[in-house]
Design a protein around this nucleic acid. Structure first.
Length: 425
RNA sequence: GGAGAGGUGGCUGAGCGGUCGAAAGCACCCGACUUGAAAUCGGGUGAGGGCAUGCGCCCUCCGGGGGUUCGAAUCCCUCCCUCUCCGCCA
């Protein structure tokens, strides 16, 4: 949700900013609607005031033992007018609320102009593009060779866009999770949390998935108030929903491993092969709740924490700043980490790190007590994958393969693999 | 699923249908005392919004929604949540 004062005072400026996303906002219509709200509100409040005054007078008259019947009749008539005004006001407010929940966040100045991912700006690369003196296999082939990655079994169990892992691959998958959690808790100052995987509509509205993106979610048929969480961002950020956080508590840094569930409606042709795009995948998520003046600095730090995972694993990657047309609904600025996949000969997203500024905080009513003003004010929230586990597994298989299809275990994971250094021996 | 108790300001916790936005305590802020601090004493301190934007005036909010009433934190209905006991169960 945008700052209502900004929206009211400068709807044209808001419209200009949102246009960079390709989002059209009718500032003039908004002004008219807000004017109507204002006059209806004034009228309603005047009538409410009048009713309150007269009702109090009735109370006083009654105590004096006077006849209050004529007074009651008079106030009754005000009540009728009031009910009408209140109804009109409620309708306009509902209309405004709907608009407010549908408006994406304002873009930060530094977000590159552009309509789609081709306009994303590369900020840096790490690890270069490693040479192969053979034609690298993709992770599906490697999974078949190593045995333990089974899409057909998953299809029997659930359907398409699922996978089963077994043996060393299942352990590697778990090793990645453990490694990431340990790194972020022991070296980056995050507190590990465990949260519900089913979330309600209020939480999803708070982080911005609802009301606009319901089709991306799985909803529980048995209890339609619940959805499967599409990312830990939802339950973890909602830890601060409705809270007023003391200055001394900040910044809050949470790390959380969860499964993520996405319907992938509208991506029917995309990434149908392999583990890249699944209905269910694991992620280790980083969430920060910070003072407003520290959020840009926090975004750089958080991105660095996600990058550290790739560096420790020795996986080549690049960092891109998403352009206006590619960035998510709630984000003011987003850095994607893209890992190199030799079989695809391209970089693929493995982490997305965003500063949501006060956008989620307003929806969540997550505030801190600003010591300078003594007042509760919206916090800033951030999150980033640290990292997507399935894609990370894919990247390791593809980058660490040899000509025979064996896979070297990255040094950082050997301890988590019980000392095992090579898969497929 | 059955029975009971309860949901009030940052926290704890009072609250006869009318002067209750709400006692008291804690916490916090200012001041006094003190070399300083603690303790003590005095005063202040909820949130959101509208008008004025100089002091200020007004509205809404006591889990959510609906109802009764001139008037509801207080009465009625309903839903949600928390706690205790019983049943079922990983």
């Amino acid at each position: 949700m945008l700052d209502p004062k900004v929206l009211r005072n400068d709807p044209e400026g808001v419209a200009a900013n949102l246009a960079r996303r390709g989002f059209s906002f009718d500032a003039a219509a908004y002004r008219r609607l807000d004017e109507r709200r204002r006059s209806l509100q004034q009228e309603t409040q005047e009538l409410q005031n009048e009713r309150n005054q007269r009702s109090k007078a009735i109370g006083a008259a009654k105590q004096r033992g006077e006849d209050i019947e004529p007074l009651k009749a008079e106030v009754g008539r005000i009540g009728e007018r009031l009910a009408e005004a209140e109804q009109g006001l409620a309708a306009v407010q509902e209309e405004l609320e709907e608009i407010h929940l549908g408006l994406p966040n304002l873009l930060d100045e530094q977000v590159p102009e552009g309509a789609d991912e081709s306009a994303n700006a590369e900020l840096r690369q790490w690890g270069g593009i490693p040479p192969f003196d053979f034609k690298p296999r993709d992770h599906v082939e490697l999974g078949e060779f190593l045995s333990g990655m089974d899409f057909e079994a998953a299809a029997r169990i659930a359907g398409s866009r699922f996978v089963t892992l077994s043996g060393d691959l299942a352990r590697l998958h778990r090793a990645l999770i453990q490694f990431m959690l340990d790194l972020h808790t022991s070296e980056h100052g995050y507190q590990e949390v465990y949260v519900p995987y089913l979330v309600n509509a209020c939480s999803l509205t708070g982080t911005g998935q609802l009301p606009k993106f319901e089709e991306d979610l799985f909803r529980v048929e048995h209890d339609p108030t619940l959805y499967l969480a599409p990312t830990a961002e939802v339950p973890v950020t909602n830890l601060v929903q409705g809270q007023i956080i003391e200055d001394a508590q900040m910044p809050l840094r949470f790390v959380c491993h969860t499964p993520c569930f996405r319907s992938e409606a509208g991506s029917y042709g995309k990434d149908t092969r392999g583990m890249i795009r699944q209905h269910q995948f694991e992620k280790v998520e980083l969430v920060q709740v910070v003072r407003p003046d520290e959020s840009w600095q926090a975004l750089e730090a958080l991105t660095g924490h996600a990058e550290a995972v790739l560096r420790r694993l020795g996986l080549p990657y690049r960092v891109v700043s998403l352009c206006g047309g590619d960035i998510g609904f709630s984000a003011a600025r987003t850095y994607d980490l893209e890992v190199w996949l030799p079989a695809q000969e391209r970089y693929r997203e493995i982490s997305s790190c965003s500063n949501f500024t006060d956008f989620q905080a307003r929806r969540l009513q997550a505030r801190w007590r600003n010591p300078e003003t003594g007042k509760p004010e919206p916090v800033h929230t951030l999150n980033g994958s640290g990292l997507a586990v399935g894609r990370c597994l894919v990247a390791i298989l593809e980058n660490y393969q040899d000509a025979d299809g064996r896979v070297t275990v990255p040094e950082a994971l050997v301890g988590y693999m019980g000392g095992k250094r090579t898969l497929g021996d």
